[in-house]
Structures are given as structure tokens and as C-alpha cells.
Amino acid sequence: MNATPVTETPAEIKNPEPQRGGGALSFLRAQLQQSLAFATLVVLLIFFSFASNNFFTWSNISGILLSTAVIGILALGTTFVIITGGIDLSIGTGMTLAAVMTGIFLVNLQLPLVVGVLGGIATGALMGFVNGVNIAILKLPPFIATLAMMLIAQGLALVISGVRPIYFSGVTGFKNIALGTLIPGLPNAVLILFVLAIVAYLMLSKTILGRYTFAIGSNEEASRLSGVNTRKWKIMIYTVAGVFTGIAGVVIAARLDSAQPQLGVGYELQAIAAVIIGGTSLLGGRGSIMGTLIGALIMSVLINGLRIMSIQTEWQNVVVGIVILVAVFTDSLRQRRSAS
């Protein structure tokens, strides 16, 4: 059966090029989208280098990277969730709870370093798992389920720590997790961010979990009818986000050499902003790890640069807010154009 079907546009049958051209075009467009975010980053870098001599120094750059690490790790995990069309508001305080639990394991219980660190990560994973169950099995809206988890984690972090920071000064080697330099000049926290970004990239674009993340975000019902166990995968995806939250908790604790139970609120919104600036759609089905990484960098370059130019913190927030608006607006413009 080789009969060529006469589909709607006979011109296309004679010449299948337009289709392939369309594929190449959409690929180009996807590249452009990222390179646009990338271009923004480059422009910011150039601008701040001219605006201040202190900006383009290695110590400042490595400072920027260090401050990107925590938000970046959170953003990586939440990229998965947002691509499914969901949201995770519990990552900020979840990170705090993971840090506090690491403190409990290492300082109060004096467990070995590896066990304590894994315990902290497991705390994050458990919260993600509970989120996933609430959303996939109990069918709670992600916003509600993770908002509740955000409050629960915040409360638990305060209760467990007795509203006092836990200091890791007695735990040898813990601080090095974030501040040591396996690669000379580069803090380990940054190394962790980059390694995790590669892992997340591979998971999202090369594994079955990534494929179903996009599929669920694109059309959950269709995925389910195609025999994809959407409940199971949603639980997995929220758990993955939880693992990233847990790792962020360990990293921030190591960076501050203490678990600060009051910290954490607001981190979730910064992480979500980084994901959105990176071109991931809040409606689901579309997004990339590279974009998220660039988005996170844009945020911290901006904050750092404004600080170096001695602009007040209050105004820094205003600028970041405007950048988010502009980023999302240009993205929706691009989308509208490609849709027609």
C-alpha cells in the first residue's frame, strides 16, 4: 500500500519540503528563544562591567555563581513540576526544613556526615512524595496542596529547631560541601549546581520520566488514555522536585554553616521566577533546563549588579519585578507569533 494520500494541500504532496522546513523552523525558533534569554544575560553582563569596575572580577563572578546555587537548584526541580502544568510553592520552606533536619541528624544525633546529608535530602524527597500523593491520588490542586505543605514545612522547621539556628561548627567537613573547592577557585556549591543541571537535563530530555513530564503537561487525559500511569508519574515528578529541594537545603546549610529556621519564605517565588524567565510555560508542556539555568543566572546577575552600583535593595526588587514582566511578555509575543 503505497498510495500517497491526497491530504489537504496538494502542493505539499508534490513537495514535502514545507513540512521539513517547518520542523527546522520550529527548532530554530526554540533555539532563538533560549538565545534570547542568553542574549539578555550577555547584555546584562556587559552593561554591569561598564557600569562598575568591580563587577567583572573573578571574586565577584564566583560570588554571583555561589548566590545562584541555591535558587538554581530549587529552580531545576521545580522546572519539572511546572512543565507538568503544576506548581510547587513548598520548595522554599521545604528547603529550610531539610536544612533543619540535617542539623538534627548531624549536630543533635551526631550521625555520620553521609547519613546526615542523605537524611536531609530524604526529608525533601518525602515532602515531594506527599505533595505528589495529595495531587495525583487525592486530586488536590497543586497550588493548594503545595501551599499547605509550605506552611507545614515552615511550622515544622520552627518547632523542631526550637526557633533557634543550629550551628554545624562541630561537624568537620560539612561546610566544605558548599564552600570547599574541588576545582580550585570554584565553590563546590556551584559545582553541585552544574552537575545537577546536567543530571536534570538528561532526565528531562533523554529519559522516560522527562517524556511523561511533557506529555502530562501537554494533555494529561490523553496521556492517561494512552496507557501512561499518570498518577504514578506525577508522584515521581513531585518527588524528584522534593529531592532537589532537599539538596538545596543541605547546600544552604553548608554555605551558612548553620540551619536558619526563619529563612526560606520567598525562595520559592524566586525559583519560579527563574523558571519562567527561562521560557518554561506555566500552562505546561513547554520548558527547558538550559532556560531555567539562564533564568536563574539573570536573576542573580541583576541583583548583584544593582547592589554593586549601590542601588537600594527596595529598588532592586522593583527592577526584578519589571524583568519578570518583560520576560514573560516577550515570550508570549513569540508564542502568539508562532501560533499563527
Binding site: 511533557f214 501537554s218 487525559e221 494512552s226 496507557g227 501512561v228 513547554r286
Partner: peptide
């Protein structure tokens, strides 16, 4: 229609059986 608009044709056809 029960397709995932963001995925490619191949990805749609073999969803769940990649």
C-alpha cells in the same frame, strides 16, 4: 482528539511504549 500537542508525531504515536 487525544493527542499531546507539544510532543512530536513519533512521540505521540509511541507514548507509553517508547
Amino acid at each position: 482528539m487525544n493527542l499531546m500537542p507539544h510532543l512530536t508525531i513519533a512521540q505521540n504515536i509511541y507514548i507509553g511504549r517508547e
